[in-house]
Design a protein around this nucleic acid. Sequence first.
DNA 1: CTGAAAGCGCTTACAG
DNA 2: CTGAAAGCGCTTACAG
Lengths: 335, 335
Amino acid sequence: MIKATIYDVAREAGVSIATVSHVINGKGKISRQRREEILNIMKRLNYRPNAIASALASKRTYTLGLLVPDISNPFFAEIARAVEDRGHQLGYSVIICSTDNNEEKVKRYVSLLKQKQVDGVIIGTGVSHGELLKPLQEHSLAITLIARDHPELGASCVRVHDLDGGRLAAEHLLRLGHRRLAVLAENERVTSSGERVRGFVETAASFGVELPPDHIAVCDHKIEDGYRRAKAMLQLAGQPTGLFCCNDLLAIGALQAIRELGLRVPEDCSVVSFDDTILARVTDPPLTVIAQPIEEMGRLAVDLVVQDLSGQSDPARRMVLPPELVVRGSTARLS
Amino acid sequence: MIKATIYDVAREAGVSIATVSHVINGKGKISRQRREEILNIMKRLNYRPNAIASALASKRTYTLGLLVPDISNPFFAEIARAVEDRGHQLGYSVIICSTDNNEEKVKRYVSLLKQKQVDGVIIGTGVSHGELLKPLQEHSLAITLIARDHPELGASCVRVHDLDGGRLAAEHLLRLGHRRLAVLAENERVTSSGERVRGFVETAASFGVELPPDHIAVCDHKIEDGYRRAKAMLQLAGQPTGLFCCNDLLAIGALQAIRELGLRVPEDCSVVSFDDTILARVTDPPLTVIAQPIEEMGRLAVDLVVQDLSGQSDPARRMVLPPELVVRGSTARLS
DNA sequence: CTGAAAGCGCTTACAG
DNA sequence: CTGAAAGCGCTTACAG
């Protein structure tokens, strides 16, 4: 059975394809009766508009690109789910693009998305130079950054208040009596991590606590790296009793290192993580964490990009959501 | 700057758009010199073919749909990454569709994918009746099932040998001396889970070990449910010392339940999980697991669907990969 | 080796 | 309220 086209419907109904198009899109004024009739015929022929043809004619594909470092990373998987859900609600499909934060891949995916004429792209990838995004903007494509920020880009963005997140983490540890603090940071390309560290360090300083340079380790975004750096750090003189990790993966590595050194969490060393992915709830003990509102961020990112491509909200909107301290088992009062 | 089209390139080169189209697609014979010339002009104009127009004319979108229960579930997130990578290698984009195994959502996504004229779809969703897939097949769309099987559907598929997986799990526990065994199974709609349980039970029987009915719990695909069912089961008379969980999420729930009852893993109760997602490596102790070759499955699923839509390999191919026992810390000899 | 022309299945002014 | 017609940017026989 061959697929019905708009011509088949028009012929059956004895009207022009323009009229059929109008009822499909709810545009123009069609007499109620004609509309019903056409709707029935569409149903009878099992007609579904060809979205490709529609996209070519209207220049709207109702497709979004989602650029993330790695969709298999739970944080981005959870972001993707939120983006997908909201996109679907609003009639958009989403194409996933895992870039590994690799410039070459970013370029290829960006070029691909342009060719595919996506209406907008949501970017969670940590791009170093906004240069890479220029091509997108020239293409007058809607762009929204998620969990990232590049104010100079002039794109809208939704992220958590990373500075406050770092502050919350520090306050929590300080209030529990910890004074020997340390940080597992992400790679410097990730500006959000820089903010978290800054918030943490500043707050510590305001309590009169300094972090020696060797108590701030810059790690790759991997469990193994968190493990390695935490292990080294815990063998330093002035062994920290409070450790702030800039994401759940690093915190898990730290947990393993601490355990392997024969120390206990939280008795000997408290750990505060960041993100609150599923990983934070499956460790033992479960992680005390500065939670990002992942679901909300995904939803808002879609809303922003869609507003943007609809020509609403001309000035790019930049939304900063509050982080939240979730106390679980990995932190305790200094004994 | 307005986007260049194939007409602009043709005009600049003083040739017809057919010729330009040929060099874009490497079809027909074009004199080497002309080709170079046209290529240069394309570069100069920064020309990129419009994939939508190309799709409409050629009836090939180079887009695949990926239907999974939930992209934020680590198992499917990891599958998605493998599918995306292989797809990208072969020139395909992938649209994610999280269905929550909900029939209504499956229908909507299937209909959407048809409208978008995707070339093929990879299905990891647990669909009860193949009915839902009929519409796809009628549309002569390439379909490949991943980590699922519906032999009656006549679609190609790639999955792990679930029966063998169940056997491996049982053998491992039996060899460690465990005789009081129990199983946390998935919802019956998931046929793969049925196989795993069957393999486990049969192998136990061959060792002369019977599982009482109340030692086989059917759970939802959630940590909480694994927790709840494991907890109940461990309070039964004849408390099991060896527990087989049909996925990592259930195993994590079980770990929590065991811990909460004041028992130790693996000393008091050994746990064997299934899947081997990142979750299996972050628990304490890390999970002994029957691993699925996730990366390979994703890659092969793309290969199968692409072969299918290219009209190669007419008879649907069904690939069954061997599972692998990975021994970590959650199992030990019965004390 | 290259081009003219039809066609893919829609949308959108425009005219009436 | 409805239709004729042009156009979206390509691909693909077909002819030469």
